[in-house]
Simulated assay, not measured.
Amino acid sequence: MILVYGIKENLNPIKAKLSDVIHGCMQSVLGLPEDKRAHRFVPMQKEDFYYPSGRTDAYTVIEINMMAGRKPETQKALIKSLFHELESQLSLASIDVEITIKEQAPYQWGFRGITGDEAMRQMISSTKLTCR
C-alpha cells in the first residue's frame, strides 16, 4: 500500500501519472505485477500541510508500506529509481520529494481473508507443487 500526500492544487493534476510512475518503479525494481497497484492519494489544503523550508508547493510525500524481508540494497534502488523517474517524467525535483519505506512483518498484513505470512506459505506450497 502506498500513500501519497501533497497540496491538492499540485497533487490532483498529476496523480494518475504519478501513480503510473510509482507503479512502474515498483514493477521494475521489486518485480510487482501490473495488477498489484494499491495507491492512496491524500490531497491536502495548503494550510494543513507543513513541510521543511527550501521546498516548493510541489512538495510530495510518498509512504511505501511493504512486508519486511527485502534487502536494503533493493529498497535503496527503489528510492533512487523513484527520485529519477519522478524528476524525468513529472519534473518533480528531488528536493520536493520525501520517500519513506515502512516495513511490517508478514503476519501484520491482512488481505484476501488471510494474513501475509499465510499467503506466503500458500505461495511457497503452490510453487513446490508446480516444481514437482
Rank of each mutant, 00 (worst) to 15 (best):
I7Q: 05
R70P: 01
L32W: 10
T127L: 12
R132D: 09
L32M: 09
T56K: 09
E34L: 09
E118H: 07
A93C: 01
S94F: 00
I14K: 14
T100C: 08
A68Y: 02
N65L: 13
V4D: 06
S81Q: 09
L86G: 03
V29D: 04
G116Q: 02
L18W: 08
N65P: 00
P33S: 11
S88F: 02
G31N: 01
E103A: 07
Q75H: 01
R70D: 05
L86N: 03
L30C: 03
E34K: 13
I101C: 07
D20E: 15
S28L: 05
E87T: 00
D48R: 08
R37V: 11
A68W: 02
I22E: 03
R40T: 11
E103V: 02
E98S: 11
G116S: 03
T100Y: 09
E118F: 04
A68K: 14
S94T: 13
R70C: 04
E63F: 12
Q27T: 06
E87L: 05
A119N: 04
T127S: 13
I64D: 00
V97L: 14
Y107I: 13
Q104H: 14
S88W: 01
Y50E: 13
S28V: 09
G110S: 11
D20V: 01
G116K: 02
V42H: 08
T74D: 02
S94E: 15
E85F: 02
I64P: 00
N65E: 07
I101Q: 00
S94Q: 14
I79Y: 09
L30S: 04
K36D: 15
Q27K: 15
L90C: 10
G54C: 03
I114V: 13
Y5D: 15
Y107L: 15
L18K: 05
